[in-house]
Nucleic acid binder design. Structure first.
Length: 828
RNA sequence: GCCGGGGUGGCGGAAUGGUAGACGCAGCGGACUCAAAAUCCGCCGUGGGCGACCACGUGGGGGUUCGAGUCCCCCCCCCGGCACCA
């Protein structure tokens, strides 16, 4: 029978809650630490991913309290979102009720894990007290001109019945939430101008040494900066200006066509002017109906159409044909490109298909290209040719020289383009924060005055089958007088992307009950930035970019000093079972409740932290869980079986190393203190929690076999048990608290300082020295620690086994590393 | 294609350029037991040898070094991101 974790865990959870053990208040006199895990969506119950995330965060929090920090460790719920609406339809329960029930249930689950949250700070993004401020933030964006409406081809998920931001289209054109293929629709929508911050979002990644390279690289790719020039062409018959963007300005002499996106504004004009207008329209129609995936797939069939119009190359004066091409994207650069088939593979394929000339303007170093016969484009650097005064320049010099010349001549300008697009934040859904604007026939778009916030969601809505937003059907809710002129107006029926709600919650935690402002600036400045953020890597280009954007915006509003929200980021791996991510559809889920009910929260936490380093995927193993449980039972027995002995030396100090002479006592003393040293380093510096646990298992093994006989030995044994419990406490808080109090201690272990290393206890009495011959281990021998190089070599050479090996060989060289090894290099 | 992260026993995983495989899981042998469970003790990379030992071994190939899982170069494979972005 194992120990009675059920009653122990309940007991200590009550104690921590009733005593407010982990409540934290801003205190400028104390050094702070803000430890945060990504808050959960209240889907109904915690899953293993949550259990892992919160086990890591809780362990770190408890460790940091012990290390003397004032630790803010809050939790809340990312409570708006589509699943609530789907559940409403499925179970005929209002989204509101479903969500709040889930929040209460999951709160209980988090408490059963023994998590050390400051529960006074819990936030729920669907709470009007919270989304009032989400709306307020929107209004600040609006005031600054960073929230705007535009008509654009946008991503539409036919399953979620709403638009999506670019970041939310993943896996080659699929919805991030439901994996349905995304289609394009032309709609007028609200956007946030995240592109204004593109350069800073990119640059500041260099100031985040505490972030994994993987995540920074993903964000750099996503932001996608490219430097080049904007070049102006003139259409011959109309004089229309057509602008193109290029990163290879050095290839302008090789331009043999111009290609426009089907959506390019000049296309409409050409249709009107040209006798081929109907044909052009037909071609454009064909392109537009292609799916996003077809249009953007690498190696997809390039389709073009000669418009009959032509443009003049401003550099050469040559006339080149204008085509419309399906592979040109309207929302990147200018929506038009200069075609250089000799030096761009896409242009090359296109040119060969439509018999457009290929003009070589860069020669490689090792061969000579011929535009007529070449089989693919030459895209590498080389030597410029056929380019007038620039002939002979290597690419790296040609680009800046030619741009400079183009700028002087007035037909080009330097330009930087980003792949990052503005953030589409409208959602055609009910369960989200309403966008606080009113449409008025007289005044246009009118923001709701700040003192009228929040714009409340109607509590009861009719669920509309077919996925249409219920808000569009609620005539009473929609109709509202214009805040400006008072005439009848109409509310915005779209709600905000829930990623808006989660872009600022970590600020709200700093002063969660503040009702006069979005957050208290002083408290935010005390707590922010988050010192340690923990969550899944799937948010690399979603939440983690949005949150950085919001923080920079807040800083610009003067609301906070921090320009980056998260100083250190830990992205934990997935929980795997039978070789695949745990998921309902695969049927390989393990329910956290079941594990906690069977083995206890301490066992669950310990297994999760021991089974793999946090960034790795974690292979779930029932056997491994049993192993963790076995360890805790051994710890329990160690204390229980020695309880009288431990009490008898409660007040007897453990002797310092200098006073210990017996070898087994010296060894145990050293083990106790190297354990403190190593566990501290593993948690604080390496964030290798699995090895920290391994060290504690070793300490238990040492204590189990010690068997004290004298009072001094008992006192040493007690010291070892105390250290084991104190170091294990952040991992397994309940059992360690219980054993701590069973051992006669009065204080709450959770708030006691982390044990201190006694430096003298770390000193080694003897060391095992490895004797190598030509780099191969041949002998091992114990010597007193601290021998000089000379003495160690002398004593090694005196060993009979070494003497034997030295017979008949010539010693060429000897390398001696004190306390470590002697390598004898021999010949013959 | 570009960028990032990886590749170590049967498995999860350890190793400031200095004993490869800590710790755990599984397995094997033993003790206790009428028996089982639980617990405790021992063994546990591969090949060879009765043995002391010897050879091989961290994806592959080179290199630096007295010494390389670790550093450098080339290559292979797996995972992730971006990709018709001009």
């Amino acid at each position: 029978m194992g120990y009675d974790f059920q009653s122990i865990e309940k007991k200590w959870q009550h104690t921590w809650e009733s005593e407010g053990t982990f409540n934290a208040d801003a205190d400028p006199a104390r050094k702070k630490f803000y430890c945060l895990e990504m808050f959960p969506y209240p889907s109904g119950a915690l899953h293993m991913g949550h259990l892992r995330n919160y086990s890591i965060g809780d362990m770190m929090t408890r460790f940091l309290w012990k290390r003397g920090f004032n630790v803010l460790h809050p939790i809340g719920f990312d409570a708006f979102g589509l699943p609530a609406e789907n559940a409403a339809m499925k179970y005929k329960t209002p989204a509101n009720k479903w969500t709040w029930e889930n929040i209460e249930h999951m709160t209980e689950q988090l408490k059963h894990m023994g998590c050390s949250y400051d529960w006074r700070r819990r936030v729920e993004t669907c709470n009007p007290d919270y989304y009032k401020w989400t709306q307020w933030i929107f209004l600040q964006f609006f005031k600054k001109g960073l929230a705007y409406r535009k008509n654009a081809p946008v991503n539409w998920c036919e399953s979620c019945n709403t638009v999506l931001a670019n970041e939310q289209v993943i896996n080659d054109g699929h919805c991030w939430r439901c994996n349905t293929p995304v289609v394009k629709r032309n709609l007028e929508q609200w956007f946030l101008k995240i592109t204004d911050y593109a350069q800073e979002l990119l640059d500041d990644l260099d100031n985040l040494p505490g972030w994994p390279d993987r995540v920074k690289t993903m964000q750099r790719n996503w932001i996608g900066r490219s430097e080049g020039a904007r070049l102006t062409f003139t259409e011959k018959s109309t004089g229309e200006i057509i602008e193109t963007f290029t990163t290879r300005f050095d290839t302008i002499y090789g331009v043999t066509f111009l290609a426009l996106a089907p959506e390019h504004p000049f296309v409409e004009k050409m249709c009107a002017l040209s006798p081929k207008g109907d044909e052009i329209r037909a071609f454009v129609q064909k392109c537009v109906t292609q799916s996003a995936i077809e249009r953007t797939a690498v190696g997809g069939e390039k389709e073009g159409f000669f418009t009959g119009f032509s443009a003049v190359n401003p550099v050469t004066g040559e006339s080149v044909p204008i085509l419309i091409a399906n592979y040109i994207l309207m929302d990147y650069g200018t929506g038009a490109i200069m075609g250089v088939p000799a030096h761009d593979q896409r242009d090359f394929e296109f040119a060969r298909k439509y018999d457009i000339p290929v003009k070589v303007v860069i020669q490689p170093h090792d061969e000579s290209l011929d535009g007529v016969t070449m089989e693919h484009a030459f895209e590498d650097d080389g030597i410029t040719c056929n380019s007038g005064a620039f002939d002979g320049l290597p690419t790296a010099e040609a680009i800046p020289a030619m741009i400079e010349w183009g700028v002087e001549q007035g037909f080009c300008s330097r330009e930087v383009n980003f792949r990052l697009r503005d953030w589409l934040i409208s959602r055609q859904r009910y369960w989200g924060a309403p966008i606080p604007v009113v449409y008025c026939d007289c005044c246009g778009i009118v923001p709701v005055p700040e003192d009228e916030l929040p714009v409340l969601l109607p509590a009861e809505v009719k669920i509309v089958e077919g996925g249409k937003s219920p808000l569009t059907e609620d005539k009473e809710w929609l109709s509202v007088p214009c805040p400006k002129c008072g005439k009848p107006g109409r509310r915005e029926a779209d709600t905000m992307d829930t990623f808006i709600c989660s872009s600022w919650y970590f600020f709200r935690y700093c002063s969660a009950r503040e009702d006069s402002a979005v957050f208290n600036v002083d408290e935010a400045n005390y707590w922010m930035a988050v010192d340690q953020y923990i969550g899944g890597i799937e948010h690399a280009c979603l939440h983690l970019i949005y949150a950085r954007f919001f923080t920079k915006f807040f800083a610009d509003l003067g609301l906070c000093n921090a320009r980056e929200p998260f100083t250190n980021l830990l992205t934990q791996g997935m929980v795997i079972k039978d070789g695949a991510k745990m998921s309902k559809s695969l049927g390989n889920v393990v329910d956290p409740d079941e594990i906690i009910n069977t083995y206890g929260a301490d066992t669950a936490r310990l297994f999760i932290l021991f089974a793999a380093p946090p960034a790795n995927d974690l292979d779930w193993s029932e056997r491994g869980v049993e192993g963790a449980n076995r360890f805790l039972n051994r710890v329990w027995r160690l204390v229980e079986e020695n309880i009288a002995l431990l009490s008898s030396v409660r007040e007897r100090p453990s002797l310092p190393m200098e006073r210990l002479s017996e070898q087994r006592m010296r060894d145990l003393k050293r083990k106790i203190h190297t354990t403190i040293r190593d566990v501290t380093r593993d948690i604080a510096d390496e964030k290798q929690f699995n090895t920290a646990v391994a060290r504690l298992m070793e300490l238990l093994n040492a204590l189990s076999s010690f068997r004290p006989e004298t009072d001094d030995e008992s006192a040493l044994f007690r010291e070892g048990v105390d250290v084991l419990l104190a170091c294990l406490n952040p991992f397994c808080p309940h059992i360690t608290e219980e054993l701590w109090s069973l051992g006669g201690h009065k204080e709450t272990l959770s708030k006691l300082p982390w044990p201190e290393v006694e430096p003298s206890a770390l000193e080694m009495d003897s060391v095992t020295v490895v004797v190598q011959f030509n780099g191969k281990v041949r002998e091992k021998e114990d010597f007193p620690a601290g021998l000089s190089k000379e003495e160690l070599q002398e004593r090694v050479f005196a060993l009979p086994s070494v003497q034997k090996r030295l017979e008949g060989v010539e010693v060429v060289r000897v390398i001696v590393v004190p306390d470590k090894l002697v390598n004898v290099v021999v010949k013959g």
